[in-house]
Design a protein around this nucleic acid. Structure first.
Lengths: 336, 336
DNA sequence: CTGAAAGCGCTTACAG
DNA sequence: CTGAAAGCGCTTACAG
């Protein structure tokens, strides 16, 4: 297992008895080379085990590399797994190789990842920003001169291609659905008020109630960690309310799952005694017991759209910025 | 949005009034530079928006890049999603950036991905080989002179670090469990006989039966697509058997889910009228109805172990090859 | 098609 | 710390 020396184009050229320039033309698939010469050179490459150094080539020709960076929050979150699937499929199809990075919602890691991707000379970046990007980071992002598209969360004052979904509308859909079912006391469970995702859901929640002439009762809004356990805790708290709700809109499906479990522990049957609606429509939602009514946030579609935007942007730096806001969709199941 | 010219180390050096060599030492964090000079230079970098060209640096210093390739079968498969999580977390922690590629079990795509990763000068590769790697590909892989670790599937005659699980033992566990529960007619449902994963499960299935003195009944072995629908079809077929089984060992949890659904359609209650066991213990398994007894294949752990092996290999090309075979684990739930 | 030269952005080694 | 030179593996442009 000794380190073999890297075979260079020059080696190939010598071996095949042609000039380096010719060999270079051949690896790049130029049509102006005689078939015979080409075959001879290709044979030499095969024999010597030549591997094209795309990195050196890109550097010399100053072309954007065929590499793209994808920065997401957390690969353990099904929403981002789905998004990753969308991005990856679309990007591979377009011939890019993808670099993956996860921020765990830390601004510092986000900064670092952006730096590293830039250092690797990626041709573009798809960024799902952390919930609190520092001024500093935002300035950096604005300065970046390679194509960049934002997904899921927008950044203030940053003009970029963007694809996300309308959380406010999604929350409204969920709550309207519950109102139509006759519910008046509707809780909003889970999530933390610092995130913009929470704020927007809250906004939709309030709008739906207000339009229906229902007063907002702050005691029905219970924050929690974004997890199953968080959901269980939140529902526990709201059940202790002197006037408990007859329905719950949950921050996301994970939280909703915890809510379902918490209800059962208390002998309350979700879907019958109380209605529960989630958010995201992740793969597990139809498997919950009862199957969960939820709002689809189309993570995969967000991913593939973002990939497409990036591809267009790479092909034409001057095209107009595009902003795609996907409309969520209510998926009614047994839990409501 | 005009293309700015890239700021080089030389630009920084000029701006700070030092030599390029000094600037180079500073970006690499050399300790022999006076604090004052360092600060001045760092300030210039900030001001000019310098970004280090890791690619050029690696090329010049002929160091393996801090980049690693991960080639999996299909990102839509939860098993590989989990594996990806394991790899990614471990690798990011160790300071690598990861390139992701998916083969969709195609040998041609596998070849292509390996080439591209090599062309990008990755420092190492974690490969989950497709089920039928051609002789050609195998030869290529043997010739690769950068660190490479195989995961999930081994390749004949290829000496590489490897981490996988013992499918044969896993299948035995599942079937033994059913035998202990008193079952004698146990079906093996789903999967296709071409894949080594199927063959090994079948081997374990047969061994367990034989040891218990139960004759193997080929009519209870029904192949199918590896999907929910496949599972439903397979169970339908086996229910038409003149002597239907009282238990089923399924190729994986997906197939098992289809089996559960197929049973219910026929008015048969899984977990009561018939026992069902899956394979993989994916995230959904505890959510099925009834919760699924299954064999955990520790996808995430395979990923993190593979990442560790690769890291060790990169640090020391001469260390002895390691072969890690994880033992699967039976997780008993309500379906059996 | 060839051949020699210059350059992409960096590192390395060395004399000062 | 500086300065000049050489080189990583490629592409580019040009005269022949």
């Amino acid at each position: 297992m000794e380190e073999k020396k890297r075979v260079t184009l020059m080696d190939v050229a010598k071996h095949a008895g042609v000039s380096r320039a010719t060999a270079s033309l051949i690896v790049r698939g130029s049509p102006k080379i005689a078939e015979k010469t080409r075959k001879k050179v290709l044979a030499s490459m095969q024999e010597l085990g030549y591997v094209y150094d795309r990195v050196a080539a890109n550097m010399r020709s100053q072309k954007g590399s065929s590499t793209v960076g994808l920065i997401i929050t957390d690969i353990a979150n099904p929403f981002y797994t789905e998004l990753l699937r969308g991005v990856h499929n679309a990007l591979e199809e377009a011939g890019y190789d993808v670099f993956l990075g996860t921020t765990f919602d830390s601004d510092a890691r986000q900064e670092q990842l952006i730096s590293r991707m830039l250092e690797h000379r990626v041709g573009g970046i798809i960024l799902c920003p952390v919930s609190h990007s520092s001024k500093n980071t935002i300035e950096r992002i604005k300065q970046i001169d390679i194509p960049i598209v934002l997904a899921v969360r927008e950044l203030e004052n940053v003009m970029c291609d963007y694809v996300g979904i309308d959380y406010v509308a999604g929350a409204q859909m969920a709550v309207n659905h519950l109102i139509q079912k006759g519910h008046r006391r509707i809780a909003f469970l889970g999530g933390t008020s610092e995130s913009s995702a929470w704020k927007e859901r809250r906004q939709g929640y309030c709008m739906a109630l207000t339009r229906a002439g229902i007063e907002i009762d702050e005691s029905l809004i219970v924050q929690s960690a974004v997890s199953r356990d968080g959901g269980t805790e939140a529902v526990q708290r709201v059940l202790n309310n002197p006037k408990p709700p007859s329905a719950a809109f949950c921050f996301n499906d994970f939280v909703a799952h915890g809510v379902l479990q918490g209800l059962k522990v208390n002998g309350i049957e979700p879907g019958k005694d109380i209605a529960v609606v989630g958010f995201d429509n992740n793969n597990e939602a139809p498997l919950y017991n009862p199957p969960l009514t939820t709002v689809s946030s189309f993570a995969r579609l967000i991913g593939s759209q973002a990939a497409n935007l990036l591809n267009y942007r790479i092909l034409d730096q001057n095209r107009e910025k595009q902003r795609i806001i996907l409309q969520p969709e209510l998926v009614v199941r047994k839990s409501s």
